[in-house]
Design a protein around this nucleic acid. Sequence first.
DNA 1: AACTAATCGAGACGGTACGTCCGGTCTTGCA
DNA 2: TGCAAGACCGGACGTACCGTCTCGATTAGTT
Lengths: 199, 199, 199, 199
Amino acid sequence: MATTGRPRDARVDAAILDATRAILARDGYAGLTMDAVAEQAGIGKAAIYRRHATKQEMVFAAVIHEAELPVRPDTGSLAGDLTALVQEIVDHLTGPAASAAVLGLLADLGPDSALGARFRERFVTRELADIEALLDRAVERGELPPPPSRPDATTVHALVTGPVFAFLYLQRTPPDGLPERLGPLIAGALTVTEGPPGP
Amino acid sequence: MATTGRPRDARVDAAILDATRAILARDGYAGLTMDAVAEQAGIGKAAIYRRHATKQEMVFAAVIHEAELPVRPDTGSLAGDLTALVQEIVDHLTGPAASAAVLGLLADLGPDSALGARFRERFVTRELADIEALLDRAVERGELPPPPSRPDATTVHALVTGPVFAFLYLQRTPPDGLPERLGPLIAGALTVTEGPPGP
Amino acid sequence: MATTGRPRDARVDAAILDATRAILARDGYAGLTMDAVAEQAGIGKAAIYRRHATKQEMVFAAVIHEAELPVRPDTGSLAGDLTALVQEIVDHLTGPAASAAVLGLLADLGPDSALGARFRERFVTRELADIEALLDRAVERGELPPPPSRPDATTVHALVTGPVFAFLYLQRTPPDGLPERLGPLIAGALTVTEGPPGP
Amino acid sequence: MATTGRPRDARVDAAILDATRAILARDGYAGLTMDAVAEQAGIGKAAIYRRHATKQEMVFAAVIHEAELPVRPDTGSLAGDLTALVQEIVDHLTGPAASAAVLGLLADLGPDSALGARFRERFVTRELADIEALLDRAVERGELPPPPSRPDATTVHALVTGPVFAFLYLQRTPPDGLPERLGPLIAGALTVTEGPPGP
DNA sequence: AACTAATCGAGACGGTACGTCCGGTCTTGCA
DNA sequence: TGCAAGACCGGACGTACCGTCTCGATTAGTT
C-alpha cells in the first residue's frame, strides 16, 4: 500500500526530542505540552503525532530510548562493579530531563500498557543481563557462592535501583557520593546472606 | 467572624474518600476525575473543594493520611525488625488504591510543593524516628557498632523502602515473601559496612 | 435527573452572540472561529458549546434568530405592500453581520439538516403567512382575482426574496433604491399573468 | 525560462474534475476534501495544485467552467425567451454536483476575490449580453418600449436568476414546471412597468 | 419563631490541553 | 518536467478536566 512518498525529515525527529528534553528540564513533566513542544521545535503537531502515538511515547523516546547504555568494564571486585552500576543509574536519573520525567512517566504508564512493558524492558530486563554477568564475575573471583546459592539477579536489581529511587525521589537527597556509599553496602548484603561473618 | 452555620456532614467526608479509593482501584490515578468522585460519592464538587484544596490533597488524604501507622514491636533481632518494617511498607503499598496512587502522587507533587513536604513527612520523616529506635535497639544488642560508626537512619530508610518500590513499581513483581527475603538481606548490608569478608 | 444547579448566565448568552456578530462583520463567515468568539466574548469555549451544538447553530442564533420581525402595516396598495416587504428583507440582509453570514450559513446547512429546516422556517414559512395576508388585502382591493386564480404565496415569496439575493450576492449591486424599483415590478408580474393589459 | 519537459497528462485533468464532481454529489461541498479528491482520482495532491490554485478554483472549474453554455434561439415571444432562459439556469443548477457546490462557492468567494469576479463573469456578465439581445428582440416585436424606457438588463437578470435561487436553495422546492411558470410571470413584470391597470 | 450563617447537590464558568483534521506547500524517487 | 506518495506547517475543531462560582434548598445554632 505505502510505496515511497516523501521521507521523514530526520531534523524534525531531533527537534521534537530536543524540545521535549528542554521543556522537561524547564517546566517539568506536568508542564510539558504538546503545543509547547511543537512551537519550541518549530514544527506542527501533526509531525509529532506522526512519530509518537501519545505524549508518553514521546517522552519515553526523548528521555529513555535515546540514552545510550555504556559498556560496563570489570572493576576487579564485586563492590567496585556495583559502585559503577549505581553510578551509571544515578547519572541516568539526575539529568535535568530524566529527573523531571521518570516519575511522571512511570505513573502514566501503569502496569498493563504496552509502553510500560517497553519501559521495563529498558530499565529492568536489559540491566538484568549485565547484572547476571557482574554476578558471574564475582563467583569466579570467589566473592559469591556459585548458583543456586548465588543471589538472584532480580533481587540485585531491586537492591541497586531501589535505593537510588528512594534517595532521589522520596527523600530528595542530593546524589553526591551516593555510588561510593551504596556500592559496598549492597556488596555486603550479597556476601553475607546467612548472618554476620563471625570468627 | 465565623459564627456557626450548618456543620459539615461527616458522611460527606467519608463518601469522598471512599469514592476516591474506589475510582483509584478501578480506573487508576490517570482515570481519577474530580467530577467522577463527586458523582460516585453522590455529592457536589464544592463539597470536595471545601475539604481538599487540590486533587492531590484529596488523594493524599484518601490513600496516605487515612492509613494508621501500627506500633512496631521489638522482634528481638535486627533482621526481624527490618523484616517487620518491610512487611508494613509492603502492606501499605499493595492496597488497590495505594498502588494506583502512589506513583502519580509522587510525580504530581514534585520536589518543592507544600504537599510534597507533607508526603515526605509521612513517608520519610516519620519512618526515620522508628528506624532510629530500631537501630538503637540493634546497638544495644551488639548487632551494630555505636555511633558514629552506626549506619545512618536515612541510608537505612533508602535501603528499606527503595527495593520495595523497585519490586512493586519497576519490576511489577508480586510481593509474596518479599519481607522475609529483604529483611535479612538489609541486615547483612548493615552489619558488614567495612567490606566483604577477607579470604 | 436535572434538578436545579447554577442557572445559565444571560450575560454570557449575550456576549457570545455579540462577539459572533462583531467577528462576522470584521472577518466574515470564513474567518469566524470558535476560539475567537470565546476570546472576544471573554468566556470559555465550553460555555459556547453548552448553548450551541455547532458553529452553524451559533451563527444562526446570532444573525437570524435574534432579529425581530417588524409588523407590516397596510400601505394601501399591492405595490406599496410589496415595496415594504422588499425593504424589510433588504434591511435584514444588508446588516454587517447578516450579509457576511447568510451565504455561508445557507451553504453549510444543506438540504437535510434540522437546522436547515429551522432556517427555512424563519426565512420562508414565517414570511409566507405575512405574504398570504398581503395577498388577501390585494384581493379585497380588487387588485388581484380571488383564489384559486390568486397567485401562490410561495411564488410571491420567491419573486420577492430571489431578486434581492441576486442583486446582493450574485451581482453585488449596492442596494440603494432597490425596494422602490422591485416592489412595483413584482406587483406588475402578479396583476397581469395572462398577458399585457390591452385596451 | 520554461523549456519543455514532460507534458501534462490530460487524463489527470479529467480525473480531478470527475472526482470533484463525484465527491460533491456524494458528500456535499462541506465534505469535499483535497485529499479525498486526490485519492478518489488516484493522483497526488501536487497534481491538483499544479492546475488549480485553490480548492475554490478547482470546484469552479469542475462545476461552472466545464458546463458549456448553449445557444439561445429566438422563440418568437418575450415570455418564450424568458422561459427558455429560466429553463437553462434551472438545468445548470439542478445537477447533483452543481446544486451541492454553488452556495458554498458563492459563500467562499466573497465580494472581493479574483475568482469571485470570474464567477460573476460567468454567471452575470455573460448572461447580461444574452439578456440584452433578448430584450432587443422584444423591442423589435413591440412587446417592450425602446430604450431608455426599456427595462434594464441587470434588473432582468436579477428577476430571472433570483427566483430560481429562491426556489432551489431557500425553499428547496422541486423544480418541476418552474420555467413554464416563471417565464410568463417575469414577462408580465416587464411589460407593465408603469403600475397596475387602472379601473 | 425568626434570623443568621455555613452547608448541601447541581451544574455553569474561564482557562487550558488534548488528539484529529484540513489546506496549501515541499520533497522524495521514478518515468 | 510531470507524476504518486506522503511529510511538512499552521491553525481550527470539539471534548475533557481543573478549580471556582452561583443557584435554591437545607440545617443547625442564635436571638
